[in-house]
Design a binder for these strands. Structure first.
Lengths: 205, 205, 205, 205
DNA sequence: CATGAATGAGTCTTCATTCAT
DNA sequence: TATGAATGAAGACTCATTCAT
């Protein structure tokens, strides 16, 4: 029987995704530990026990939310790095793409930013445990490349700059303004940030 | 009667402070909700129940840790703003002082950064509820002043810059490297960050 | 939406009632504070935590037991007063009906008699807090009416007589003889008491 | 060494008595189980631990309060019975003396009435465990004697009458009116009650 | 005698999870 | 798939009691 699926994951992938979106929202709003399975179920219009027809556990929900988000981020960063652009353009593309990915997965990003470190250390988050900080690595490599070839200041403290960029990018995940439009901002935001940052990174004329 | 102490809040202030330091460490390492009172007590070398001789509740411990930290930060920022420096020097001083305060209260800062938003919304954190984002306000005001008087670029997007600075500063709270020396770094770190940032903020020659 | 039930107050009313009966028995036997939730659960053949599927708290159980009992007593007294009988017949009916109600709810009555006053003062017993002493009021009114119209001695100290009656009636709640048959006694008991009491209240021939 | 006393009872009997009076008040007001040792200590102006210089345990305090009260009641009843009065006078004397004793030890009486039955069943109340219901026995004997010799109605249901008297007497322990004068009432009260009761008990002319 | 810090047992309550219907 | 009753393991908190100072 080729249709044999995992025991508990027996629901339409459609429904799964819906439920994960709800769960992500609740996790982001209250924190993973403060979120009860019943809280998620309430929000989804069902009873707590019913969630277990779709997921193995509360942990597995969060693990899936986060690893899906991170897989997407990895793909995004990988595509940018593989595009063969120069350091400056690569940096721009990384920032822009990150903003977009975070903006499109606000809840997951918020969970990851605030609780990723704690959760990764726990058993029950296997997919989260081994994850490398992709974005940070991409930034680091790009900055070093640019500092070496003169795209950026030669005396740039790349480790510091990397952290600054990283924190700036992830910081946006916390701007919980749900009122803000979902999509179009990311572009402007990224450009604004880049203006601020690049003018500090680029060597003077 | 100033000598009348609350029943539980008694105990010599010395011990209180010690215990709060321990608690802060554990909260920072595991997250507030994942931390058990027994975990704190273990670390402090006593039994869980004994903590209640010094504190009213787990919540009150966290509330006190965070509000003490924030009160200090407010004082720090206030002193800088009151010094009557120009926008650029004020900004430098704010960043330096913040780094120092965060560096000296690493655990509290980490808790605040990762869980402040969640915790402030809960009952049981009265002192945290009404707190204004002091640092952010100080940064915002300083940036606007500098943009107006030409200390910074006149076309500066102050809101964006404020957020960038804020996220950069708070980001350091997460750099958990306990190996890093506790004291001397903050100065260099602040200077390094300022170099990166100011060169982007200052108008071109 | 009348079908919207409180989350915990759900469960079929049948089971609720059963559990409350068990709880009442245990409360009556050991006292409210000395009763542990686990003790009730043991008696009900379930685990302590499972009780919280039916009730919000230990307090709410006792509150419901007592307020249900008192509501019934109020209805009983009200019906008697509304029957339009003369003072003497009203008094007889009040005593008889009270005995019956107490006899049919022995456990609740015992709890109320011994702990009602203490519990009503605590938070967590909202339904008990505002309750008027219905039976006492009914007795008082009837005695005064009878003293005025000559059904009882004109020089009757109604306040004293009211208390005597009240204490006599409630006293039966303590006669915990579980061996005594549940039903038929109340009638005889009430008649016996009335003989004792009325011959003292009725004017001499 | 003839001055060797019990280990913990090492305080002036004076102080002991004071503290027991405080304890009785608190027990009566809140119930034995709901009363904390610290609550008693607060009321006594000392710390919880300090009470253990005077008493072995919370249980021993209550046990002493109750057994002292009951010993006094036994003596009182005994004296009345030994006076060699007729049934009617004996009954009057019993009621009057009981009222007085209860009125002078309001708190202890209230504790006994509401919690005596529960507490006597627990270990830790040795002096309370074996106690006979002296008052009830005295009443019962007197009623039977009177029914036999014609002092009371010959067809009197002595068991019922005994209970009625008992409940009426103990009922006064609950009349918590702390405003009411402490002493002089008991006489009037007893006389009032006796009027009510005796006119029902005495055979008709 | 009194203090106050600490103990250790126990209580109520929560919650993720299971499972028969 | 969904329900709702039940489980069992924990967790926060309380409190009688002890003891060194």
């Amino acid at each position: 029987m080729p249709t044999k699926k995992k025991p508990t994951a027996a629901s339409r992938p459609e429904r799964r995704t819906e439920l994960l979106a709800v769960a992500a929202q609740v996790f982001a709003a209250q924190g993973y530990d403060a979120t009860t399975v019943r809280g998620i179920a309430d929000e989804a219009g069902m009873l707590a026990g019913s969630l277990y027809h779709h997921f193995d556990s509360k942990e597995s929900m969060a693990d899936e939310i986060l690893s899906t988000f991170l897989t997407g981020l990895r793909a995004t960063c990988g595509a940018v790095l593989d595009a063969g652009l120069g350091p400056r353009d690569t940096l721009e593309a990384l920032v822009t793409a990150s903003f977009r990915h975070i903006g499109r997965n606000r809840a997951a990003a918020a969970i990851y930013r605030t609780e990723g470190a704690h959760l990764a250390g726990r058993p029950g988050f296997p997919r989260l445990a081994g994850v490398r900080p992709v974005l940070e690595e991409a930034l680091s490599r790009t900055l070093e490349r640019g500092a070496a070839d003169g795209s950026f200041r030669r005396d740039l403290d790349t480790r510091l700059a990397c952290r600054l960029l990283r924190d700036a990018i992830w910081g946006t995940a916390s701007w919980h303004e749900p009122g803000a439009g979902p999509g179009q901002d990311h572009g402007e935001l990224a450009r604004g940030y880049l203006t601020l940052l690049l003018d500090g990174l680029t060597p003077r004329v």
